[in-house]
Computed example of a mutant assay.
Amino acid sequence: MTYIWYSQKNDVAKKTVGQKEIQIVSAIVKKYDVPIKLTANGTVISKQTVEVRPQISAIVKTVHIKEGQFVHKGDKLFTLDARTESANLNKAEAQLARSNADFANALRNLKRQKKLFEQKFISQAALDTAQKDFDSLKGKLEFDKAFVQENHVAHGFTTITAPISGRTGSIPVHPGSLVQPNIAIPGSVTQPRSAVLVSITQINPINIKFTLPEHKLLIIQNKLTQGDIVVNAKLDVPGVPLIKGKLIFIDNAVDTKSGSILLKAEFPNQDKKLWPGMFVTVMLTPEIYIDALTVPVQAIQTGPENKFLYVIGENNKAEPKIITVRLVQDGVAIVEGISEGTKVVVEGGQNLKPGSTIIDTQSPKYKDKSTNNAINSYTDTHTSNWLLG
């Protein structure tokens, strides 16, 4: 029993001495090219939205699309009853044919009158009358040509096609509905006097708008002089990869209330992952720090006046080193005032003071020692329990 008590006393004494050495986790100051990431919350917006409206008063004959359907530019959307427009067009063409005949007759009569006048068979007044009739019928002919063209245009309004490619919205009309320009359609959710048959929203490509602080504007402008700025969009959906686009717009003024600048980026959207109105996270890297000195952000210590790092020197002594922090992102700090390859304290710095002796828990020697201590502790505990039993 005396030997066991003496051995336990020696262990306690060793632990008391060992408490002067503070356990820490260290890291090496490394040099990298670090891209500076700017992150913002963005809203997905369509590149353009077109409201399709009727240009004439008519009955809807056929609706060729469904709500929420994807259409291409030129696809047929609606066919209106064209009987009135067809009759007006036929009437205008008949009037044009009559005017053509009258004009041809007036031209022949004018030529005859000119020959008779040259032979002194008619007076100047008779020639003037023939010229007047010719000029009048020529003007009427031009008017009838324009009238026919006008009716062609009106007849064309009876077939409504898609002006852009995109996705259709709600359709408030059906076959048999009467539509009129500038008169609200019953059941339409749009504003009064809109007469919107359907709206088409362009989905691919699609835009995202976001804002950045005004002090980032100069960095972005400098990057644009070198080429396109890549913008990545992140959806709030696990497993969805980043969507790559490019910056296309910088607003012409800074918002004086928020001190921010509006920007827009364009993204390909063939798989339709982006939808108007969605909220996404936008990331861009307009600048790169070349040969930046980096340390884990946990290594940064804050003093009364400066930020500093605990540097591990000779004999495992920790000494503070004042540094300047240029940037913190993704758990890494870019610092100045220290050399590459310097060993610094990452964890355990709160327990240190200048000149403290440390034990680096990441060193192989310490790991072996810790393992042996754990085994000895386990053995001593079970031996004591056996003796007490």
Rank of each mutant, 00 (worst) to 15 (best):
Y3D: 13
E21S: 00
I28C: 04
I36Y: 03
T39M: 04
I45M: 11
E51G: 09
Q55P: 00
V63H: 11
K73G: 08
L80G: 08
N90L: 11
K91F: 14
R98E: 14
S99E: 14
S99A: 13
A106K: 02
N109T: 11
K111M: 11
L116D: 01
D128N: 14
T129G: 11
D133L: 13
D133E: 11
D135F: 09
S136Y: 11
L141E: 10
Q149I: 01
H152M: 06
T161P: 02
I164V: 12
I164Y: 02
G169M: 04
V179T: 08
I183S: 08
I185G: 06
V189C: 10
V198C: 10
Q202N: 03
I206V: 13
F210H: 03
E214C: 04
K216N: 11
I220V: 15
K234F: 11
L247A: 04
L263E: 03
N269T: 10
Q270D: 15
Q270S: 15
D271M: 05
L274S: 06
P276T: 05
T281L: 08
T281S: 12
P286C: 08
E287M: 09
Y289D: 05
A292G: 06
T294M: 12
E314R: 01
L327N: 01
V332Q: 15
V332H: 10
K353S: 05
P364C: 09
S384L: 15
L387P: 00
L388I: 08
G389H: 08
